[in-house]
């Protein structure tokens, strides 16, 4: 990972309640979260768009290629020891190297949780160090329930929560796309849970945005009912998503389920991502979501990384899932 001082159209911008284009560095620091030095410049593929999120949308769309490209990795479970994957560190390292070999430099990389298996300080330290090797300006995270065992996410936030709000959530604008990172792994009773404070954050966060602003929402646990029997859903997601209904493009990206799945409901498309560690059963396949031990030589095909790109003027983000090589 590297950082370059400066600012430009692809510099992540915090959500600005008054809808204006630019904001101070202090605002940027306060509202966003990433590793290391906070400010970076990332111009994708040499293309520069002419305005940023929150503007009137009157600027001409001049980009011909993607204006935003990012990668998603998930569920690395550093510290896991079991037959399903004898070396989760090695497969996570391979995933990092695969992101770095995409052929372009992603504007950011998001890890959608379960960075660690047992939320120990050593595991947090290890995953944080390993992710510094990602060749991108920004590494973002959301916590998984494995990252918030016993302490309501305190150790997670100590490691990754700089600049976040509430119990670790945040938002930012980058290249005309509004990104919301949610925490739905705390105060659980059966399913994922957001809570009233976070739902209110979402309401206020998008209030000033133009309805044609593409929205990307990250969470660990799915925001749709993928399989509630195994806890694969979020009990109060509908209320949060209700504030996004007026937007023409909403993309929700999650981890947790260790497998690919896509579903569209109205204006919202949900994409569950795979894992860098080990597969879980398909919904309802067996008694429990226990790690699946695959025949020799087949593990890598079940693991992978995700590429996401956005082109100006297109409603849907393009998503490409790649198996671990």
């Amino acid at each position: 990972m590297s950082t370059t001082p400066g600012g430009d159209a692809n510099e992540p911008q915090p959500a600005n309640p008054d809808g204006s284009d630019r904001m101070t560095r202090r605002q940027l620091l306060r509202h966003t979260a990433w590793f290391g030095a906070a400010v970076a410049l990332a111009v994708t593929g040499g293309e520069v768009i002419s305005h940023v999120a929150g503007s009137t949308g009157k600027s001409p769309a001049i980009a011909t290629g993607p204006v935003l490209r990012f990668a998603q990795i998930s569920d690395s479970h550093l510290g896991f020891h079991g037959g399903a994957n004898g070396d989760v560190t090695a497969t996570f390292q391979q995933a990092i190297e695969q992101v770095n070999a995409l052929g372009y430099r992603p504007d950011f990389v998001m890890h959608t949780g379960d960075l660690t298996h047992l939320a120990t300080p050593a595991q947090f330290d290890q995953v944080k160090q390993m992710m510094t090797a990602l060749d991108t300006d920004h590494v973002f995270t959301v916590p998984g329930e494995h990252d918030s065992i016993d302490d309501a996410g305190q150790k997670y936030r100590a490691a990754f929560g700089a600049g976040s709000r509430g119990e670790g959530w945040y938002s930012l604008d980058i290249a005309g796309v509004h990104v919301i990172a949610l925490v739905n792994t705390l105060n659980l009773r059966f399913l994922g849970h957001l809570g009233t404070d976070q739902i209110d954050f979402v309401r206020k966060d998008v209030a000033a945005l133009s309805s044609d602003t593409p929205i990307v929402v990250f969470s660990h646990i799915p925001l749709f009912a993928m399989y509630p029997t195994w806890g694969w859903g979020t009990d109060d997601a509908t209320q949060a998503l209700s504030y996004l209904r007026r937007f023409s493009s909403v993309t929700c990206l999650n981890g947790h389920v260790h497998q690919l799945f896509t579903k569209t409901e109205g204006n919202v498309t949900f994409h569950s991502g795979t894992t860098t560690a080990y597969p879980l059963p398909h919904p309802g396949d067996g008694p429990a979501p226990k790690p699946v031990t695959l025949p020799a030589g087949r593990l890598h095909a079940a693991l992978g990384i995700r590429e996401v790109s956005y082109r100006k003027g297109q409603h849907a983000l393009a998503i490409r899932d790649r198996a671990l090589t």
């Binding site: 399913l191 925001l223 749709f224 399989y227 509630p228 009990d235 997601a237 509908t238 579903k263």
Partner: peptide, 15 residues
């Protein structure tokens, strides 16, 4: 659905 799962969540499959 379990009481906590519906109707407050977009649905995919009945558990």
């Amino acid at each position: 659905s379990p009481p906590s799962a519906s109707p407050s969540m977009p649905s995919m499959t009945p558990p």
